[in-house]
Amino acid sequence: MSEARIVDARGSFCPGPLMELIAAMKAASVGDELEVLSTDRGSAEDIPEWIKKVGHTMVSSSEEGGVYHLRVRKAK
């Protein structure tokens, strides 16, 4: 697996994991993979929702010890 840039949004209530991801996506290049770390259960739903709406790719999603790992790829 290629190296993903980590977006460590654990404990982030504001701006929160999705907003952190949106910011990181802007700075990334097409094809880059990012992995968001989040302790917010809601982000396991709202990150895939946003990724789908914009047309990026959801690579994987898992949870380990209360930390969600959401891996995405910038598609455009």
């Binding site: 504001c14 929160g16 999705l18 907003m19 709202d46 929702e49 946003w50």
Partner: peptide
């Protein structure tokens, strides 16, 4: 607003 609710703080 950028995310799925009207402010980042729920």
């Amino acid at each position: 607003y950028p995310i799925g609710r009207i402010h980042s703080l729920e």
